[in-house]
Structure formats: structure tokens, C-alpha cells
Design a protein around this nucleic acid. Sequence first.
DNA 1: CATCCTGGCTAACGAGTGTTAGCCGAACGT
DNA 2: ACGTTCGGCTAACACTCGTTAGCCAGGATG
Lengths: 204, 204
Amino acid sequence: MPSAVEHRTGSDAPPDRHREILDAALELFATIGYRATTMAQIGDRIGIRGPSLYKHVTSKQEMLVEIMAGMMEELLRRQRAALDAGGDVRDRLERITAVHVQYHAEHRYEAFVGHREIDNLEEPERSRILDLRREYESHFRELVQEGRELDVFRTSSDRWSSYAILDMGIGVSAWYNPTGSVAPDELAATYAELAVRMLGAGDA
Amino acid sequence: MPSAVEHRTGSDAPPDRHREILDAALELFATIGYRATTMAQIGDRIGIRGPSLYKHVTSKQEMLVEIMAGMMEELLRRQRAALDAGGDVRDRLERITAVHVQYHAEHRYEAFVGHREIDNLEEPERSRILDLRREYESHFRELVQEGRELDVFRTSSDRWSSYAILDMGIGVSAWYNPTGSVAPDELAATYAELAVRMLGAGDA
DNA sequence: CATCCTGGCTAACGAGTGTTAGCCGAACGT
DNA sequence: ACGTTCGGCTAACACTCGTTAGCCAGGATG
């Protein structure tokens, strides 16, 4: 289920301009930033002029909202699925870490924009998305805490450890190269292992 | 050696406008971003008008250059000192990790801007600073590699592990609260421990 | 006292940009 | 055939913002 529609080859398949525009915008937002991106540039990417975009989207700001809300909701959805799959604390922490990293590799543009452009969202969307993010982060913290109380994890601070895991995953979206030789799920598994080792529950 | 000059209390002590302006700019760049920050806002912070800034700085872009170059050079300086202090691989890795984290906590604005605004630097400054960053990162990777070859560290990839350590430190600059109860050096020590555990060299 | 320098100010320019208005050709339904 | 809708286009508006020009008060300097 690829989210990008590539070059129009001829004139078959319905263009789905809305998606096409959002994909172009996403790439530009990720590459040069929301404020630096102009409507004309987005139009260029799909071969139309800037003002023509308004036949398909309502504003630049709304495009950012759509991208960021979609990103955060999808991320939470996957995290919840990982948690609902059950297992012991360590299993669940490995799974949500893997989900976290895999998403940040597979959807590095969405993830990168999702973290970098929050302050360019106008209220009330900004607060709404920050709430989602807090919920997302809290699942890591609660799991680390649970593991520590069960003596599965050893850590001096649930908060710092969970932030460390979160941040090393977020970092992936900044350097991951999809044309490289490492697959997202491979990277995810490696990072999950790093995380549990960090929490003092390595397989030694 | 605090870099910020706070509220003018009266009219003593030379204002050192240049520093004052850079500090105001830094705070704004970190808070709302380089492109979103206007010269008028920077002026507001120190009680003068936007155009008056040009009596002390040459341009907005040059302020960004000064901030980012200063940050990266200072970071490298500290890292080199940590490496030159010697010790075995594990000692050195713990030390550069601690330096990394401590700087990102103590100078979270500089660090945050340093990573977020790179693409807003015009060439050739951008390339120059990216070179410094690559050098900085390579020291982590080389140390991880050295440790792995000596069987001190166990890791499936020097590159990924070192990126993980780097990114969890960078993340600190985004969430660290200087008015909180945790001191930068305390956090640094904790993260250094997390790092070596991650590399399979925990004290267990 | 006269002069100059420092560092503020306002006014204005010029470039860039999101968005709106209004036009028009092509495809399509009836 | 004909009207309507879709989705392009150009022109233009409204506004923001970095930067420059030019003025002036006040203190330092001779």
C-alpha cells in the first residue's frame, strides 16, 4: 500500500491529485522545511502552477495538519497493536521499540516532519497533536516502569531511559537511507535489542 | 562563564550588545525557528528596533553562522579533550558520551539550533559545519569499532550503535529542563552508563 | 566650544509569498 | 448540440520581512 504515486506515465490511472500533492509537499517539508517550501515548488513537483493547488487543497497549513495528524495517528495505531499483542514486559517493550524504529525508517519523511514542524502548526491542532505525542511517549515510560518494578529492567530513571529509546528511534528518521542495504525491519530488530540491553535486560 | 547577560539592572557594566543580540537570537531561533524569527522580535528582546540591530551585526544569516559554528567548534573542542584524557576504550567512550550529553543539556538552545537549522545555512558555511559534524560523529563510530575489535563491546553494527548514542544525546536538547531537579552532569553520567550497557559492556 | 563617533530612530524599498479572482479549454452528461 | 463541471492558467492583492538610507541626540575628544 504505497502512499506515493510516481510519475504519470501516460494518461491512464486516475491521478488522485490530493494524494499526489500531499506527497510532493511532504518531500519538500522534510527536505527544506515547511516555511521554506513555497506553493510554487509543490506545484512544480506535479507539473502545475502554485495557485492551481487550491483546486485540491484548502491551504498550505492544512496540508501540514493533514500530514502531521496522519503521521501521529498511524504511529499510535501501530503502537497500540504492538501493545495489544500481549507477552511479558520485555516482549512488549521490544515490540513497541521495533514498531517505533521501523516506522521512523519506512516513513522517515513523515516522521521527520512530524517532529520538526510541530511549532509551525497553528492552534488548536498543535495542542491536539502534542497530546497524541505525550500519550505515545507515556506508553514507553509506563512499560519501563512496569519492567523495573518487576525487576526485569534495571534503570535509574524510567523517564530518562524511555526518552533515550524514543530519541534514538527518532534519530533514525534523520539519517536512514532507503536505498541502502539495510531493511527497516532489520534495523528495528537491532534497535529493540539495544533498548533492552540499555535497560539491563540483555540476553548476555 | 555564562554566555547570557540577563536583564540590564541599571546602567552599569558595558552592555556588550553583540553578545546580547546573539543570545536573544539564539533563544528565538531555538523556540520558534530561524525562518520564523524576525529582526524586530530579536530587537524587542533587548529593547531596540529591528533596524538598529545592524549597528552591531551584519545580517540575520551571519548571526546563525556565528551561533552554529561556535556551537560545533565548542562541541568538538570538548570531545577532543575527552579523548585526549586517555584511558581504555570503555573509559573514553563513557567520557565522550558524557561530554556529548552534558553539552546538550547545558547548552540545549545552541545544540537544538545546531541540529535543526543546518539547512538554513547558506553555502559554503553549511558544508563546512557538516564537515565538523561528520568528524564529531566519526569519533564515536571509531571508538565503538575499536571496542568491538578488542571484544570489549558487542554490537551488530558500529554505525547504528554510534548513531543511537549520538541521537539519544541530541534528543536531550529537545526535552531537557534546566529548572528541573536533575543536573547536567548527573544526566550525562546516567547516559554514559546507558551507552556502555547498550554496547554490551555493562558493569552487571 | 566644536567636532566626531556611537547607537538609537523612522521611513521606505524590494523581494518573496500565500491566497483570491477571474478566465478558459476540454471532457462529459443529457 | 449544449450547458455544466473540472482543473488548469495568469494577474493581482495583501502582507511580511530583511535590509538600506538618512536623521538626530548625546557623550567623548580635541
